[in-house]
Amino acid sequence: TFELKGKVGKVVKIAEDHYLVEVEGDKWIAYSDEKLSLGDRVMVVDVDGLKLKVKRIP
């Protein structure tokens, strides 16, 4: 999972307290300090167990 840091993915689902992002064909639970929208491109900035911390990228 640490090899996911720096990888780019996209938001595929928005849940009440987390996001579902697809990175390299796999779906992961993710969270972010900013509000994300469906389809946003994101970069993995940290890995916390099986959850990814992501940030939006242009």
Rank of each mutant, 00 (worst) to 15 (best):
S32N: 10
T1Q: 15
S37H: 06
D48Q: 07
V8P: 10
L50K: 05
I57M: 13
S37M: 08
I29F: 08
E24S: 03
Y19D: 06
M43V: 15
K35N: 10
V21W: 02
P58G: 14
L52N: 01
D40M: 13
D48V: 13
R56K: 09
E22N: 05
D17P: 14
R41Y: 13
V54E: 00
E34Y: 11
D26F: 15
G25C: 08
D48K: 07
W28H: 05
S37W: 13
D46A: 04
K7F: 03
P58A: 06
W28N: 02
G39N: 09
D48Y: 14
G39K: 10
R41P: 13
L4G: 02
V11Y: 01
K7L: 03
K51M: 12
K35H: 05
Y19W: 11
R41W: 15
E22D: 08
G9M: 02
E16T: 12
F2Y: 04
F2C: 15
Y31H: 04
K51L: 14
V47E: 04
F2W: 03
R41C: 10
G39T: 10
E22F: 09
S32Q: 14
D40E: 10
K27C: 04
K27L: 07
V23Y: 00
V23K: 00
V45Y: 14
V47Y: 05
A15C: 07
V45E: 14
K13N: 12
A30C: 05
D40Y: 13
L4Y: 01
K51D: 05
F2H: 15
D46L: 03
G6C: 03
K55V: 12
A15N: 08
E16V: 09
K13Y: 10
G49H: 09
I29A: 15
V47D: 03
K55E: 14
P58F: 12
L36I: 12
E3W: 11
G49L: 09
K35A: 06
K53M: 14
K35W: 04
K35E: 07
V47P: 03
K51A: 09
H18P: 02
K7G: 02
E16C: 07
L36R: 02
P58H: 11
L20W: 14
K10H: 11
K27F: 10
G25Y: 14
D46P: 01
K27V: 06
L20R: 05
G6Y: 01
L20T: 08
K55G: 11
D48L: 13
G9Q: 00
D46M: 03
